[in-house]
Design a protein around this nucleic acid. Structure first.
Lengths: 156, 156
DNA sequence: GCTCTCAAGTCAACATAGTTGACGTGAAGA
DNA sequence: TCTTCACGTCAACTATGTTGACTTGAGAGC
């Protein structure tokens, strides 16, 4: 499963001619995303999981007793797409489903202790990358970064 | 192919409890990436292409006469993974391959006029999102954003 | 000139993450 | 009671990536 040493773990910011002023920013977004997720993905691979599993764990950790329907909504994928990765997490007892007696219609999902540990470690890898970057630019730079990202995210 | 109207085009920044200080930044990166690529992906879908095709077009546009081997290197994927999307682009004459007489070993790739047009339009969607966000925060904020993203990207 | 090697490139088989469609099931309202 | 409808599951398909096996042609050693 794990590569020997991975001669090209990401792609190391290629040197491309810039056709437009904003091409550099475009590429920064691409490599930034890769940079943030690279270590986390490598860790997840060692425990036999991947990005979609992490997204599920991340959300369930922050919304204990979430129903499947609500989880679908938050993740923005179809319920069928959720089915297999969530099935694996249940099978491996990283997520527990309970049916409340009165509310028999929907399952309520929670992380088990093992699930919490994996979620935390994977997210820690991502937060570490961010923290180091923020440390380099200080609080004002961090605030500016958040403002830009917020504007991009809300662009719709 | 195209959805009716897409009731949930992205996912609209869910309200999750923040377990860590940096969770908000984590989510901004996620939604930022989605925000930047959403319109471009929708456009690409209308011309029957998707993200990997765009990445190929983007690189070839900025490195005319690139060989397949070099393209693989820049994209960071296996040559087999490149094969199908590139095959489609060649078939649809968005990319042209020529073999130089003396250097018969490798194909040299270039965009056709049609390929250039599509690459430009797709990238324009992404640049537009960035430009609007940068405009909101001004030059210093933009510089800070670039610094942070550079630090994240180079984290390795 | 002949052969051997090796990178370039292609084809086939498979894994994973998503999609839509069809269906089962149980709670709740008419 | 019967119908409905959200919740959830199963099956089939598409797309994007992977590894492995193969072909082919350039260039090196003899």
């Amino acid at each position: 499963m794990q590569k020997t040493v991975s001669q090209a773990p990401g792609l190391h910011r290629a040197s491309l001619k810039k056709l437009h002023e904003l091409d550099a920013a475009l590429e920064l977004m691409y490599y930034g995303w890769r940079g943030m997720t690279l270590l986390a993905d490598q860790y997840l691979e060692t425990v036999g999981l991947s990005r979609p599993h992490h997204r599920i764990l991340y959300v369930v950790a922050r919304r204990p007793d979430i129903s499947i329907g609500a989880l679908i909504e938050v993740l923005g994928i179809s319920k069928q797409a959720l089915n297999r990765p969530l099935g694996l997490l249940l099978e491996r007892k990283l997520v527990a489903a309970k049916r409340s007696p009165e509310q028999h219609r929907s399952k309520l999902l929670r992380l088990t202790a093992a699930g919490q540990r994996i979620e935390q470690r994977a997210s820690d890898h991502e937060r570490k990358v961010l923290r180091e970057a923020f440390d380099r630019v200080g609080a004002p730079g961090t605030a500016a970064w958040m403002a830009v990202m917020g504007a991009i995210a809300d662009d719709n």
